[in-house]
Nucleic acid binder design. Sequence first.
DNA 1: CAGCGTACCGTACGCTGTACGAACCAGTTA
DNA 2: TAACTGGTTCGTACAGCGTACGGTACGCTG
Lengths: 259, 259
Amino acid sequence: MATEYSGSGDPARSMALLWRTRERPSRKAAPELSVDRIVAAAIEIADADGMAAISMRRVAQRLGVGTMSLYTHVPGKAELVDVMLDAAYGEVAVGEHSCQDWRSRLEWLARQSWDLYHRHPWMVQVGTDRPVLGPNAMARYEDQLHALEGLGLSGIEMDAVVSLVEGHVEGAARRSLEAASTQRRTGVSDEQWWQARAPFLERLADAGRYPTASRVGTVVGAAFGSAHAPEHVFEFGLRRILDGVAMLVGQRCTEGDPD
Amino acid sequence: MATEYSGSGDPARSMALLWRTRERPSRKAAPELSVDRIVAAAIEIADADGMAAISMRRVAQRLGVGTMSLYTHVPGKAELVDVMLDAAYGEVAVGEHSCQDWRSRLEWLARQSWDLYHRHPWMVQVGTDRPVLGPNAMARYEDQLHALEGLGLSGIEMDAVVSLVEGHVEGAARRSLEAASTQRRTGVSDEQWWQARAPFLERLADAGRYPTASRVGTVVGAAFGSAHAPEHVFEFGLRRILDGVAMLVGQRCTEGDPD
DNA sequence: CAGCGTACCGTACGCTGTACGAACCAGTTA
DNA sequence: TAACTGGTTCGTACAGCGTACGGTACGCTG
């Protein structure tokens, strides 16, 4: 029922945590708890039961450890979520796309994110207050920018394109995952859910208030029966976006070379 | 610290709430509480202090009423959030764009949403489990589809374009608002925040791990000083997307006329 | 051995959403 | 008039949350 925010708290502490630059590696030989173990446990819980299931008590329980022990290694829940995110970003391979054209590179990266979000649905449920700026998130950003180099785009344009594509992936993934998760959680299929609402909608649609929506809604609803529709919506949007970027790149190529 | 989900709970009850189709108009002449009064109070709180500040106790307090009285009119917090969203969507004017070309219409709608999200920043903090399907949300959807009619796009394509544009607006608005809100909340400007992290980043960038990112990051960071950068990112992405959609529309226009 | 810093954790506080049942009260029926 | 009905209001209570605080146990350094 509740998602977490990220990015509040002392910046230095937060960065030290993300980059694992703790001053001393501990006196004790083997401190049985560690940031990595905590994060791993939290991710397991989130993978299984969603972001709403993440609580300090629950994470501690899974580790067989007192709740407050977590606070020795992690300043608080918000920071834990930050590290969870960065750890997840660390799963995607980096620098594996250098030998193709920019469009294939961007597509590859977008599909990588799409897959990542589907592997860890909780990632699109966090409302970040700030970009996470951990090592893996930065490596990915670096990778994304790298895919756009040599096209004559300015730095600002490169950043804007990356965030445009990444934003699309996140949005499409969110819709895709929401449909799937609610279906699982409530045991109600998309079709059934829609049918349950249909009486209301039809009564109002008959009154002619939403002619286009009811026509399109019916078509889309029918198409959603065929399981993979969200993926098609993702691919469709990606194609449109890359077409638009291609137009910009074409423009820039015939110009001089800024920045 | 916590966002709410929406769309859980009995469908019929939920729809009845959104559409205000209560069976009996009450025995008592003037029941001092009502869904509208509750929603209005909740929106006031969310506008002022963000989604995290919304709690049943707080809403009740603002209305000078016992906490549990709310539950007479609203099944629970999730449903309240649904109605808040639909009420907010009701703020945007509908059907005011019919006399222009499709591109201007989509731009107008996108900017309308952009403004709406900036008027009610909490809207982009809700993780909806399902589309809200209230009267105002549907009217808006109808409006958006209507803007795309007569271009030869299929129903599925129209839906995909709408969700592509709307997804971009939401994502861009989220980034814009996050920057602004954290700035306000922590009293730390974007520049200052970046500077606080700079020592860490520079140490790592000097090691040459993120050459592109640090170059671009510097440029973007500098540009963010000029206040309205998020708006430019929004406009940039919108232009690219509409360029891409235009290519599709061009294709379809030279073809036959599918549904 | 003493001293100290760290890891661990039990308890407690103030917050959350909401289930339950009591109290009240207007209008309907006997 | 009296009893009943069904809707509104709300006090209390419970389970769960994040985490501040203080205490304990232990290994390393002096």
